[in-house]
Design a binder for these strands. Structure first.
Lengths: 154, 154
DNA sequence: GCTTGAGCTAAAGTTAGCTTTAGGAATTAT
DNA sequence: ATAATTCCTAAAGCTAACTTTAGCTCAAGC
C-alpha cells in the first residue's frame, strides 16, 4: 500500500531512470534517506524524484557523489525543498562549472602555444605548470609534472 | 651500464615525475614498449620521456589511457618521432578538447535556462536530453535521463 | 490463500588507473 | 668483494560508482 506522498524504490527507479541498485547505493552514500514501512521496505518521498534528478544532472557535470552530497546538504532539512531552493543550489553549482570550463580553456590555450613551438616536453613548456584543472580522476596519488622534468636534448 | 640513448625505468621516472610502478603499468597498457637488457631490465629510449610527458598532458585533459594509446598509434613506428609528429597529434587532440569544452558550455547554458524557470526536474527540462557530454566516467552502465522522467506535480 | 513479483541484506565482482607487497635477481657504489 | 640500490614479476589492494548474485521476506493479484 502506498500513500500518496510515499513511493517505493521501484517507482522511484522508474521515474528517474536509475537502477534500483543505484538508488540503494545512493542511500549508503547519504544522498537520499528514505524511511521504512512496517515490513522494512523503503518509502521515499515524491520530492526524492527531484532530488535524484539533481544528482544525475550534477554527475553529468562531472561532480563526484561526495561533492553532490555536500551541495545537497545546503537544502533545508525541515521542509520539502521548493523550486527556489533548487534554484539556489544550482547557482552555486554553475559557478563551479564556470571554473571548470575556464580551467579547461586555459589548458587548451597553453596547448596552442605548444603546438606553435612544437616543444611539448621542453622545460619551459607551459603545460608543465601543475596549477590547472583537478588532475585527479581515479584512485591513488598522481604525480604532477614539475618544471625541469625534461631537458631540451630529449 | 646505460648507453647514451638508453635509460632505466628509474631515470625515466625521475625525468617525467611518474612513479616507477606507473610506468610499468603503462607498459602493460601498451603506451610504451621498452626493450630489455641482458639482465632483463627495461631499457627505454630518451624519446620515451617525451612520449610519457604527452601521456601525462593528455590525462590532464581528461583522456583515458585507451584513447591516448590510439592517438599515440598515429606516431611513426619506424623512427623516433620528431617535433612535427608531436605537433600533428596535438592538433587532433585540440579538436577533441574543443568539443569537450563546447559540450560543457552547452550544458551550462541549459542549466542557466533551468535556473531561470526553477524546474530542474520538469519534463520539458532541457537537461533531460541525454545528448550531451560523455556521461561515462566510472564502471558499469549508466542510465541516462529520458524525457518524461518526472511529472510536473512531483 | 497461494503464487508471483518486488524488496531486502550482505558480499563479491567490475572498470580505470595505479600502488603496495613479497620475494628474488641484477647493478652500482665503496 | 660486499653492501646498498635498483629492478623484476606476480598478485593483491585501493577508490569510485555501481551491478550481480544468493538466499529470503513482503506485498499484491487472482
Amino acid at each position: 500500500m502506498q500513500r500518496r506522498n510515499e513511493i517505493s524504490i521501484g517507482t522511484l527507479a522508474d521515474r528517474t531512470g536509475l537502477a534500483v541498485s543505484a538508488i540503494r547505493y545512493y542511500e549508503t552514500q547519504g544522498l537520499v534517506a528514505p524511511e521504512r514501512n512496517a515490513g522494512g521496505q523503503r518509502r521515499f518521498l515524491r520530492s526524492d524524484i527531484r532530488r535524484l534528478s539533481f544528482v544525475m544532472i550534477a554527475q553529468k557535470f562531472g561532480f563526484t557523489l561526495d561533492r553532490i552530497r555536500e551541495v545537497l546538504g545546503r537544502l533545508p532539512q525541515s521542509r520539502t525543498p521548493t523550486a527556489k531552493d533548487w534554484t539556489e543550489i544550482s547557482q552555486d553549482f554553475r559557478a563551479e562549472l564556470d571554473e571548470q570550463i575556464a580551467a579547461l580553456t586555459r589548458l587548451r590555450d597553453k596547448l596552442d602555444g605548444c603546438i606553435g613551438c612544437g616543444c611539448l616536453s621542453l622545460e619551459r613548456c607551459a603545460l608543465y605548470n601543475p596549477d590547472d584543472v583537478a588532475a585527479d580522476k581515479g584512485a591513488g596519488p598522481r604525480y604532477l609534472m614539475g618544471d625541469e622534468a625534461v631537458r631540451p636534448e630529449d
